[in-house]
């Protein structure tokens, strides 16, 4: 089951959902509109099997993403839940402008609480602004016992690139 907007408000008040900062006007009928944080990582090159990124702060007057290149952004809000699973996607207004937000991994782990990294790929040059509403997150009821997420990305608030050293370690 997917939580309605009013249920998201209720569960946040109970502490079962974390969204900080939170504004009522960003509530949708069955999701919450999140905003774009200020930091952006730009891909530089691929060397010895590793990708290198450069970090910038998105200026107030906006920054143009070049097509077919991947950028890493992050949500302005700290978002998470110890009770619900989360699906983080772009909003239709941005998809309609040709911006992929989350390339294919939209599912968030229950119990991870942080500023989420956004994978952004533009199909046409597109301007982004810090703090703009850029996507939405929905909350889903889990079936079964919830164990704690102990993965490698849960603690990151800044845009975080892939950690190749850790992917094969179990």
């Amino acid at each position: 089951m997917i939580l309605t907007g009013s249920e998201i408000i209720k569960e946040r008040e109970k502490g079962n959902i974390i969204i900080e900062p939170f504004f009522m006007k960003q509530i949708n009928p069955n999701s919450y509109n999140y905003r774009l944080g200020h930091k952006l990582k730009i891909f530089l090159h691929f060397k010895n099997g590793k990708s290198r990124f450069k970090e910038i702060v998105i200026p107030k007057e906006g920054f143009v993403l070049r097509p077919k290149q991947m950028y890493l952004g992050h949500t302005l809000e700290t978002i998470g839940s110890k009770k619900y699973a989360m699906s983080l996607i772009g909003r239709s207004s941005m998809g309609r402008l040709g911006l992929f937000l989350q390339v294919s991994a939209n599912l968030g782990h229950t119990t991870s609480i942080h500023q989420w990294t956004l994978e952004m790929v533009a199909l046409k040059p597109i301007k982004i602004y810090p703090g703009m509403i850029i996507g939405q997150i929905s909350f889903w009821k889990n079936y079964g016992n919830v164990s704690k997420y102990s993965g490698k990305f849960g603690k990151f608030n800044d845009p975080q690139e892939f950690l190749i050293d850790k992917i094969f370690i179990n």
Partner: peptide, 21 residues
């Protein structure tokens, strides 16, 4: 058929826009 926004709001009605890539 969509590149990011697959979720539709409850109560919305109309032709759904497809983001064709």
């Amino acid at each position: 058929v969509h590149i990011t926004a697959d979720l539709i709001d409850i109560g919305s009605f109309g032709n759904a826009t497809l983001q064709l890539y």
